Computed example of a mutant assay.
Amino acid sequence: MTYCVGLMLDKGLVFMSDTRTNSGVDNISTFRKMFSFNVEGERDITLMTAGNLATTQALISLLEERSKYHSERDPDILTVPTMFQVARLVGETLREVIGEHANTGQRADAAFNATVILGGQIKGGKPCLFMIYPEGNFIEASEDTPFFQIGETKYGRPILLRAYDAAMEFDEAVKLLLVSFDSTIKANLSVSLPLDVKTYAEGKFSPHQQLRVEPDDNYFQQISQGWGVALRTAFQELPDFKF
């Protein structure tokens, strides 16, 4: 399984993804689910993937391969002029990959399902965040819907809904996402560290910060333990129910 979150802030964008994939309790692997496409000073684009691993790897491989051979006739992720067109391109490529698998006789919406969070900025436009579905269609984040989740979303969503603030600094937003991921990891064994983290500051056209949180990371352990203590304290301070 997977858990990925893309978050819009006034200052830019924040991305976080886990790295666990498994097809059973005795078959667990680590695979990167966050990918970057960058032209220094002109664009910075991030994709995070959830779903069938073969589908998501084929999607990223196609996008990378086509970006190496620029053609005016076949625009690629490094040459299309707007983030909206990047979203269309990724959606069409995802549909193409799923369609190829579907032609073998399997149902694409079952066996080869994949979903993508896409975010970034191209010079001349503002930072954008999209959720792309297996059918190739997509929706864009807004003030009303300022973040997207894919994968195992339900356990980490409550803290995002209660604590998110668009005016957050990047370090606050990363702390919030770490709490969201800690809640998910504790509730579902199919999501786990290491976690990939990236922040993007508006107008920079290169990553603001990019790092990997390993299982032995001291700060993550502080967040995990501190959040547990804070929840127990808050629960104890609530008024008791009266029969």
Rank of each mutant, 00 (worst) to 15 (best):
L7D: 02
V14R: 04
V14Q: 04
F15D: 01
F15C: 08
D18F: 07
R20V: 14
R20D: 05
N22C: 11
S23N: 05
S23R: 08
G24K: 05
I28L: 08
S29R: 10
S29T: 13
R32V: 12
V39S: 15
E40H: 13
R43W: 09
M48P: 09
A50F: 08
N52D: 14
T56P: 01
Q57N: 15
Q57H: 14
A58P: 00
I60W: 05
L62M: 13
L63G: 02
L63A: 06
E64N: 15
S67G: 13
Y69A: 10
H70Y: 09
D74M: 14
D74W: 10
D74G: 02
P75A: 08
P75K: 07
D76G: 14
I77K: 06
L78K: 13
P81G: 11
M83D: 11
F84W: 07
R88S: 06
L89T: 07
V90K: 01
E100Y: 09
H101Q: 10
Q106A: 14
Q106N: 05
A108S: 13
N113C: 07
G119L: 08
G119H: 02
I122G: 05
F130L: 01
M131Q: 12
I132A: 04
Y133I: 04
P134L: 10
N137V: 15
T145A: 07
T145F: 06
F147H: 11
G151V: 04
E152G: 06
Y155P: 01
R157S: 09
L160S: 03
L160M: 15
R162N: 12
Y164Q: 02
D165K: 14
A166N: 10
M168E: 07
E172W: 09
V174P: 00
V174Y: 01
V174D: 01
V174K: 04
K175Y: 12
L177I: 11
F181N: 12
F181C: 09
D182Y: 00
S183D: 15
I185W: 00
K186M: 09
A187R: 12
N188Q: 03
N188G: 01
L195G: 08
L195A: 08
T199M: 07
F205T: 07
F205M: 10
P207T: 14
Q210G: 10
R212N: 13
V213E: 04
D216V: 12
G226W: 03
W227G: 03
G228N: 13
A234E: 12
Q236R: 12
E237D: 07
P239S: 05
